[in-house]
Amino acid sequence: MSDKETPEQRRERLRQEEIKNNIGGNLNDSINKSNNGNLVDLVGSLGWKGTGILIIVIILGYIIYSLFFS
């Protein structure tokens, strides 16, 4: 935290702290944001753990789909 921090930098820092502290609520926010946003907003708001879980869910969904519908 610096005295020379701009309002934009402060908002981003606070947003990142909230993401780290509230993963479950943030997942809901990111899913709702995806309705009106893009993939970059979704991944950015999920963080690296949430993005990893999302990728695993997509891969597992594809595997299960291919097993049942092949």
Results as ranks from 00 to 15, higher is better:
S2R: 11
D3M: 13
K4N: 12
K4D: 13
K4L: 06
T6L: 11
T6S: 15
P7C: 01
E8G: 05
E8M: 08
E8F: 09
R10D: 11
R11M: 14
E12M: 10
E12P: 03
E12I: 08
R13G: 07
R13M: 05
R15G: 04
R15D: 10
E18P: 00
I19A: 08
N21M: 09
N22Q: 07
I23P: 14
G24S: 12
G24L: 12
N26V: 01
N26H: 01
N26T: 08
L27W: 04
S30R: 06
S30G: 03
N32C: 02
K33A: 13
N35S: 05
N35M: 09
N35V: 08
N35A: 10
N36K: 12
G37N: 02
N38S: 13
V40R: 14
D41M: 10
D41W: 02
G44N: 15
G47K: 09
K49M: 11
G50Q: 10
T51D: 02
G52F: 12
G52H: 04
I53Y: 08
I55Q: 06
I55T: 13
I55V: 15
I56D: 12
I58N: 02
I59L: 15
I59G: 03
I59K: 05
L60C: 10
G61D: 06
Y62P: 00
I63Q: 11
I63G: 04
I64K: 03
I64C: 01
Y65E: 05
S66Y: 04
S66C: 00
F68H: 06
F69R: 15
